[in-house]
Design a protein around this nucleic acid. Structure first.
Lengths: 119, 119
DNA sequence: CCTACAATTCAACAATCATTGAAACGAGGA
DNA sequence: TCCTCGTTTCAATGATTGTTGAATTGTAGG
């Protein structure tokens, strides 16, 4: 991931409403949520949520799809993953021994350790 | 890590000069660099670098120490680690199978895999 | 074709943030 | 003590960003 792209993603996540939207959509999973439902969930006006959704989409954090009259947004797990990778690469650059413990603390779930061991 | 703190960190990293400073200090390691040296390295005025350093310090991304007449800044690896953990927790929440592959891609170095396997 | 609905776009305004240069501060060395 | 160097603080300015409400676009049903 390029530095410029990473900065755009960081900027997107630094805003309260946008971060709440991302967390909401991560929880919602691949099914996603309609723009209107998101607006209601985070309690902001439709035009405002649209503004932020566009920003998040541009930052590669969410992805839209049309479904009947609604537009459904869902988290872009690839984008989120790439951002984590960028951060880890910078954090650990030349100092794996300092950052490595973070991996243990930040494990996603009980299966993660096994997946690592396989490698 | 709290959401508010994470947002402050994201905001800090979203600015070009600040991100360059963080990457510079990560590379510099625990020894860190003096404010003046940082200013020269990223090619901005002393007052401007001071402004950004204060912001990064407030965001928990760097830590200062006095040394003779200079003030030495170094990367706050704990803060960076916490931010990664926050991102992974949000990204993976309820979906470890989607995010887990990121760990393999983002390994710090060749020794990381062994350290994981040990766990 | 007309109406209703979901979402976006637009223009305007308020608020926040980045940059600059001058001035002030604090720690050493002569 | 006085002077110098490294850094920070301050006030002013310009640039970005967030918010609001009205107008617009696109989709579906009567």
């Amino acid at each position: 991931m390029e530095e410029r792209q990473a900065r755009t993603a960081f900027a997107a996540l630094s805003q309260e409403t946008r971060l709440r939207i991302v967390r909401l959509l991560v929880q919602a999973g691949p099914d996603g949520m309609a723009a209107g439902a998101i607006a209601e969930a985070v309690a902001v006006s439709p035009s405002n949520v649209s503004f932020h959704l566009k920003d998040l989409e541009h930052a590669g954090m969410i992805v839209p799809r049309r479904e009947a009259r609604s537009i459904i947004y869902s988290a872009d797990f690839t984008g989120l993953r790439d951002l984590i990778a960028f951060l880890m690469k910078d954090c650990c650059a030349g100092h794996p021994e300092i950052c490595a413990p973070a991996l243990a603390d930040a494990q996603c779930g009980p299966s993660a350790a096994r997946k690592k061991a396989r490698a």
